[in-house]
Design a protein around this nucleic acid. Structure first.
Lengths: 200, 200
DNA sequence: TTATATTTGCTAACACTGTTATTTTAACAT
DNA sequence: ATGTTAAAATAACAGTGTTAGCAAATATAA
């Protein structure tokens, strides 16, 4: 009896229709504007049909999150296998990581919960500049007494800040709510590396 | 006539009641569950009253974002002023930054748009581990041939990843949508610094 | 003091969101 | 053709941000 098979096949078609039209909407208008109702409209089924394929909206997002990590992992593996020297690998992988993030911005935002609304907000905040000034002043002084006094202030400041933010947000994403003071070693490690490289 | 003054004072009281009860709710249940209706309930006014003080919900969030950057800038300035050597300043400021983020998690999440829902999600994603394995393998090889082969693999991996993520997300927050290939210099700079420090 | 403005705050509604209980429709097996 | 089962639709519930329209309290002017 091919009936059950056909039914399964049709069910699978609806499922992939949900995902593909969801993805289309996300690429067009971002995660914020993705809604169950719009998906239902797009696939020309009623709303509850979607809940026969996914437990809830979060499950749909989880699907894309997994996809994103898979894609990134594949790209990273491919890059690593191009080089034999581990240092070259780390360098090239960093490039691959960067390119993935901006080539597949939607994936990256979802994977790391980069709230898109804040992007608009943070640019309106003049108060951020005060922070910049403070951080950059120490950078400038450090560069002045370093062995390479011609280094780019803004670049080094940006690097410094990015390292800090990366450490914090990876930590926040990984363990919700746990401070884990031992993780401060990572901070110490990264910053001492940065300063060492800053002073040459 | 003190009437206008009293009115202004009363209006200011309502405004600060909005902010303080909003903040209370955020600390108790996170940004996700903050709603205009709940604020109205808490201050014992009707909903539209809130719109007499803030144009919309975003404006309330913007208020806290500004507050967050001010607080952080103050702390950073205080820390910097404790030290004379710029390297010490950078080191101490990194600590201050870290502490602020976790002592005032709510601020930090808002300031950098760390979508809280993703935190629950990312931990469910087994696919993330594949990525970890790939990154960590190169780190291990690099450590093995470095001058300090006893370095902590996991710590160095975490540092590597955090630098990458920090660079990407700061870049995404700063310029919405613009790839800006010149910013890849920052990546090159940070990663070469990391590798240098990794190899000793 | 009374009448007229004005401000102020409320109720109710609109247009959305995710989610689900209920009912109808359709497909299949006997 | 009839009974059974699976599928899908309607309609509703409980939320969300936001706003129009109206009633009441207050301040100003006559």
């Amino acid at each position: 009896m091919g009936i059950a098979e056909r039914r399964l096949r049709q069910k699978e078609e609806v499922r992939s229709a949900i995902l593909s039209s969801a993805w289309k909407m996300v690429k067009e208008e971002g995660w914020q504007s993705l809604s169950i109702r719009k998906i239902a409209d797009a696939i020309e089924y009623s709303i509850p049909v979607i809940y026969n394929h996914f437990e809830n909206k979060e499950a749909i997002l989880l699907e894309f999150t997994k996809e994103g990590f898979q894609k990134l992992a594949n790209k990273m593996a491919a890059t690593r296998n191009k080089y034999k020297e581990p240092c070259k690998q780390l360098e090239a992988m960093a490039n691959t990581y960067w390119d993935f993030a901006f080539d597949h911005k939607e994936y990256y935002q979802l994977m790391f919960g980069l709230g898109i609304p804040a992007c608009d907000r943070v640019n309106q905040v003049a108060e951020m500049k005060a922070l910049t000034v403070i951080m950059i002043s120490s950078i400038e002084e450090a560069i002045a007494v370093s062995k390479n006094p011609d280094a780019d202030h803004f670049l080094k400041y940006h690097t410094y800040w990015s390292i800090l933010h990366g450490l914090v947000s990876i930590q926040m994403i990984e363990k919700e709510g746990k401070p884990d003071p031992s993780k401060k070693l990572i901070l110490k490690d990264a910053i001492s590396g940065f300063i060492k490289s800053l002073m040459e």
